[in-house]
Write a protein that binds this DNA or RNA. Structure first.
Length: 114
DNA sequence: AACCTGACTTCGG
DNA sequence: TCCGAAGCCAGGT
């Protein structure tokens, strides 16, 4: 029978998948908002990922610091988390260039490699 | 329901 | 490389 409304075992939503994916980003690697959104099923859901990080990182213990923008840089502003994120990444072995950019070819997480 | 906001992304200049 | 505009999506007011 078709899925009933009252059925709690719902099909994973974009939100659920995104969280699941973020949790899988290995230590020492990073992923972009768009990348996560794409793997979660919506290539244009980068902004949703942002919302998710803000609303659920603490509930799901997400490695929010491993999420960066498509330019390979931290999107947070100095004084609003930038320093914290940079520090956490460096602690995991991720190196930053002088302009605070990360070498994507080296640290970008590639799920297909798993 | 309209409007605003956000850790985005891509494109053009 | 930097900036602005446009496109995108969902939650909060």
């Amino acid at each position: 029978m078709a899925a009933k409304k009252g059925n709690k075992s719902k099909v994973p939503t974009f939100h659920d998948r995104a969280i699941d994916i973020i949790k899988k980003i290995p230590r020492g690697k990073v992923a972009t908002y768009g990348q996560i959104a794409a793997y979660a099923g919506n290539p244009r859901g980068a902004r949703q990922v942002v919302w998710i990080l803000n609303s659920s990182w603490h509930k799901h213990n997400l490695p929010w610091h491993r999420v960066i923008n498509s330019r390979g840089r931290i999107s947070l502003k100095p004084g609003s988390g930038f320093e914290t994120q940079k520090k956490l990444l460096q602690k995991e072995g991720v190196k930053f260039s002088r302009d605070n950019s990360i070498d994507k070819g080296k640290y970008l997480w590639l799920p297909e490699l798993l």
